[in-house]
Design a protein around this nucleic acid. Structure first.
Lengths: 212, 212, 212, 212
DNA sequence: TATGAATGAGTTTTCATTCAT
DNA sequence: CATGAATGAAAACTCATTCAT
């Protein structure tokens, strides 16, 4: 069984005292990835983490709490890559390109986290941490909003229903990543980054759009 | 608890003798939708269906078999709506429009089935029926292939990597539907059918495409 | 480990189909008596009953349900002895004598049930069956009420606060039985039946009481 | 949650250094009273006492030790009220009156301690401190013995089997107190002190007893 | 074919207790 | 003396599945 570098979770729990907690998160991720979330027993995580059930419950409350902690750690990890990239953009077109490129890059480099994020959403959304998830979802495309608004204003981006932009932009990439993560397609997401970035722009750009 | 019309499954199990089997499928769908697939017990289905555990096992072998039967029935139901529509198209552009419209229509009209299809994929893909699923996936966009090939040939459709067309076309709709099915957006998928149909065409159409 | 005759529970669950259920009750009583109620595990009962955990949960819902079922069976068993005796009385004095004699007799002959009744009260009173217990408590001295009322009326019984009669009558016997059941005194309750019966009468009889 | 005055335990742990220990006993009593002895966790006591598990184990060895310490502290508290009263009596009749009155008084004023004493007896009697309990039980009616012996000798008290006196005297009061402590009767024990004191005397007094 | 009582392996979770700091 | 993170044995309970009727 592959083990994952604790560095995946550096952002969430810094400091030397938290090594044990990180080890549990890493092991949980490995187990979830290998057996599936529901099929993974706390006992399996315990064995992989060389820990004790008591410790796991001490740190995370219960299995659901562990899943939620890992979920938000993964979300953080992803946003820590994507957000700065979008912030560095100087045009709407570039911002969207950065979004797609960094998203595909993250999924390609951290397939276990990406798979977990996809599989755990249902569990988290229906558990006691659903509020946190809702809050996070609102932020997610926050940085992009201003670029979209600007583009609509200056005529480079089509005025479409607000609710549809996110789907139009990320939908194709997400669909492809899911297919790759489940082994249904072979080519890595990053192999098609330009294809998806270009298509994302075409999806919302007006005919006479200047690319800025 | 809402109950579902056995007519959802007419295509799969015709004939008056199969009423009982349909009833079990309906009840299972209702339970899966309310409690989640893993959290639904055979006992819960039995109660809802006014049946007996023995009957359920007689008809479906085991819980996994019941999930698979329901999954393929849902797939059939969806394809029975979408496929004829695509077949009726006379241009690439129209075929894609029919795909998106009928897909959004089906999800909007049968949210329980759509949710189940989304949630059960993982279970089926990792169970003994994964072969059947793979086979079905191959057919899925079968009718569309010729239109895409034709479009590429006559220059109306961009020559893109084969693996990406499906994602580019259905990705945004799928993403939006998932958001709607989990309550994250309010507007019905059909409310945005034209938006997603147009965007799908823009995603793959070449600049100088005639819409045929 | 001593096993108990299923006949203890005949009154509650007649019929040949209930043999299994009776066996579980018998085994539970034996375990509770040997190890204590809290210290008895469902697994221990399962072993003693040559049954399965599933069966125990099938029949009684959970451990608390098993305790309650046994508790009310014991209560029934006791009342089935005492009530007819009281009903057969022709004077207040005789009714009270019958109460004390039959109570002591029952405890002496069924010490395991008596111990369990004493030990399980707290559990039942604080569980979901507390209503049933309250209802039973009200009936308990029902047959005696009329004799007490009659005695007070005709001057043979002291007019005392209603709440105190039960304690005055049964308190000494109960105290002694508890001591015997926990090994603090050696002589059997029935050895002192006349002492306690006479004292019960003296406790409530007026000075000039005729014994009828 | 009600907290209990450390003064309840003054007799056991005098001196200013023992404040911490008293605090733990008080908190344990509060928890036992609210949740039940078995259901109370060391962690719950720790929280209530604003202490640490280490401290609790340092002072009392283990949970059983804490229960025993509290049990004997409660016994002491009760005896410290009752014994001097009995000692102050000048006749058998008065001694018995003092016993009943002070017993009912103690239960009425310290219902949590009384409830605990009743509930913990089983635990202590089956633990490593059972010897101590046996020793205490022997003393309990020690001071009364001489009054009973004297009464029997001078004819004012009936010559009854030795094992029965304690039950005859305290049984009714105990039964009533238990009913009050569990909410089955409303009137306070002290409201009926004279009733139970008079009955106790009638229970053992000979017909021609002078009240001395 | 239909039924539902019986099964028991397998899970999550609790909690008294220890011990390094 | 005090602390509280870590431990892991043990318990209650679930639930898919079987099979005698």
């Amino acid at each position: 069984m592959q083990t994952f570098s604790p560095s995946h979770f550096e952002s969430v729990e810094p400091g030397p005292r938290k090594e044990h907690k990180r080890q549990i998160l890493s092991s949980a991720l490995a187990c979830f990835d290998e057996f599936g979330i529901e099929a993974t027993t706390v006992e399996a995580i315990r064995t992989t983490a060389n820990s004790s059930v008591g410790s796991i419950y001490h740190h995370f409350g219960n299995k659901e709490g562990l899943i939620a902690a890992l979920f938000f750690a993964a979300l953080d990890d992803r946003e820590n890559l994507i957000r700065p990239r979008i912030r560095s953009a100087e045009t709407s077109h570039a911002a969207i390109g950065h979004l797609i490129h960094s998203y595909l890059e993250w999924v390609t480099n951290k397939p276990e986290l990406a798979r977990f994020l996809s599989n755990a959403r249902h569990s988290v959304a229906n558990g006691p941490h659903s509020k946190d998830l809702t809050a996070r979802n609102k932020q997610r495309f926050g940085d992009l909003q201003k670029w979209l608004a600007l583009g609509v204003e200056n005529g480079s981006i089509l005025p479409l229903p607000k609710e549809t932009y996110a789907s139009l932009l990320i939908g194709p990439s997400e669909n492809f990543c899911r297919a790759w993560l489940t082994g249904r397609v072979k080519g890595k997401p990053t192999d098609y980054a330009d294809v998806f970035a270009d298509a994302a722009w075409r999806a919302i750009a007006s005919k006479n759009a200047r690319r800025d």
